[in-house]
Design a binder for these strands. Structure first.
Length: 255
DNA sequence: ATGGTAGAAACTCTA
């Protein structure tokens, strides 16, 4: 089983690239973030036509998440249980016996911003909810744009980034809290190239200079981690014409 | 690496 995640930064613009990616990788599941589409405008028919079902939760202009899958998804749930949030950042579904949770963690803007406080509060709610979800679903995968680079090796210039949003101590602590729930960072289960990143700023020629951060992750429950055979970042997707600023991350699970 | 891109939508906000 192949599970992937990709922040597409507008599904309207990126739909042709998503269709191409589905054809190339044939993932069983593809989680999307920043679809930036109201549900009425979600391209269900285009995705059905290439063999994928879609569950989605979107809004105009900002945010928006979706789960595309070859098999029909069950128990679709939107948002974090018991947390009213007008921003569409979470969708979950059970697919082929795996609880797939697609998340778009707030960016936070900067550590002095109100949005950073929203991010930290949001993470607290997420962690409490995932703890419950793990009890209910031992085969669980948490995929998405975390907007957190967990370690120095996930950042092109850790000294420059120290204390900044995406790499501040409270954010890294929240990531460790998720790991402490027994989740494993699938990327680090395997040997990886140095300077592996999943996001590069559109500005400053970030991709060409590999000035990136690894902020897109696939965390797996122990049962799934045991069956995980590979995890990689499809960095070449970032070299497309009119690219998203993120590359997809993909895992193979033996099941 | 201390600038300024990309997307959506409206002339600005978000990332």
């Amino acid at each position: 089983m192949k599970l992937a995640t990709w922040n597409v930064n507008s599904l309207k613009v990126r739909l042709p690239q998503v269709v191409e990616y589905l054809a190339a990788q044939k993932p069983d599941v593809l989680c999307l973030q920043e679809t930036k589409l109201e549900d009425e405008k979600f391209p269900v028919n285009d995705l059905n036509a290439v063999g994928y079902h879609a569950a989605f939760s979107g809004q105009k202009t900002y945010n928006g998440v979706a789960i595309l899958s070859r098999s029909v998804s069950a128990e679709i749930a939107k948002g974090i249980d018991g947390y009213e949030d007008p921003q569409k950042r979470v969708i979950a579904a059970t697919i082929d016996g795996v609880r797939v949770i697609c998340i778009y963690i707030p960016n936070g803007e900067s550590v002095v911003s109100q949005k950073y406080q929203y991010k930290l509060g949001w993470l607290e709610r997420l962690i409490a909810w995932i703890k419950q979800q793990l009890e209910a679903h031992p085969r669980l995968a948490l995929l998405g744009d975390y907007n957190i680079a967990p370690e120095d090796r996930d950042v092109h210039h850790p000294k420059f980034w120290a204390g900044k949003v995406l790499f501040s101590d409270p954010e890294k602590a929240a990531f460790r809290d998720l790991i402490a729930l027994s989740l494993q960072d699938s990327f680090r289960l395997f040997e990886q190239p140095e300077k592996s990143y999943s996001w590069w700023d559109y500005r400053l020629n970030g991709f060409k200079r590999n000035l990136g951060l690894r902020i897109d992750h696939i965390l797996l429950s122990p049962e799934l981690a045991k069956q995980c055979r590979s995890c990689s970042i499809d960095r070449l997707i970032r070299a497309n014409e009119r690219p998203s600023d993120h590359a997809p991350v993909i895992v193979e699970i033996e099941c």
